[in-house]
């Protein structure tokens, strides 16, 4: 029986972030958290292998404030969850996150398949999956939009810019999935109630061999971007189409939009 782990990130719901003033600073006063969108696809993949093929399926996460997520994630299919909740993880980067997740997964032991979302809803750096593969010594398969389990490995379809690549591999792997792969469930009443009976294991950083977390990257400032409109009206004052088109071309050239 295969052992599968899905990783997820507990992120700020971007709908609640407000961009304020000329400085476009971000206001987090009234935010709520959610399971990162693509990670829901990763969890659904694991849940479906658990329900249809009887695989063992666990969820894994880490962060400074992730305990509020446990009930939610357990209602989406995992049999249990292992996590690190530590104030030191208030600000992390992909490097630190993947070290913590790798530590948890090693602690779980004998994991055959790790599934991550292709990127997180907030940073979308697409790094945690491949970094995790390197740290665990597993194969890394990205951009997956179809996944099957084989006798001793997996078969995955990768959706690339110029085509589709089908890969087969043996041994353990870390797979990052695209949103096309499935439609994440909306937990049903029974699934929500069942989640309350499932177990969760809280691990300390020391227990997974990480005493100090060296954060190499520090975020100095985050602000929103807005595309400024120039509000140029081309065909004002009864201009003919030909004239307007010429004026448009000139304008686009002046802006550097046309070579």
């Amino acid at each position: 029986m295969k052992k599968i782990v899905a990783c997820y990130k507990w992120v700020v719901d971007e709908a609640d972030i407000r961009v304020e003033g000329k400085a476009r600073s971000l206001n987090f006063d009234r935010i709520k958290y959610k399971i990162s969108e693509y990670d829901r696809n990763a969890i659904e993949v694991g849940a479906s292998f658990n329900e249809k093929q009887g695989c063992q399926f666990l969820a894994v996460t880490c962060g400074a404030n992730v305990e509020a997520s446990l009930k939610d994630v357990l209602s989406r299919g995992p049999e249990s969850i292992a996590y690190v909740n530590d104030g030191a993880l208030e600000e992390t980067d992909s490097s630190v996150t993947s070290k913590v997740l790798a530590g948890i997964i090693k602690k779980i032991g004998e994991v055959d398949l790790v599934i991550c979302g292709e990127g997180s809803s907030d940073g979308y750096s697409q790094q945690v999956g491949p970094r995790l593969a390197a740290l665990l010594g597993y194969a890394s398969v990205t951009f997956v939009n179809k996944l099957e389990l084989t006798e001793d490995g997996i078969r995955a379809e990768r959706k690339l810019e110029d085509g589709v690549e089908v890969v087969e591999l043996t041994g353990p792997a870390v797979v990052t999935v695209l949103p096309d792969i499935n439609k994440p469930r909306i937990p049903s009443l029974k699934q929500i109630l069942a989640a309350k009976k499932k177990t969760s294991e809280k691990l300390e950083l020391a227990a997974i061999g990480l005493d100090s977390l060296a954060l190499k990257q520090k975020t100095l400032d985050v602000s929103g971007t807005v595309m400024e409109r120039k509000n140029i009206q081309i065909n004002s004052g009864g201009m003919t189409i030909e004239e307007a088109a010429q004026k448009l071309v000139q304008q686009l050239k002046a802006d550097g939009s046309l070579a």
């Binding site: 909306i186 937990p187 049903s188 009443l189 929500i192 109630l193 309350k196």
Partner: peptide, 8 residues
């Protein structure tokens, strides 16, 4: 002690 199930 009540159980709350949201989103249902």
């Amino acid at each position: 002690g009540a159980i709350l199930a949201s989103g249902v």
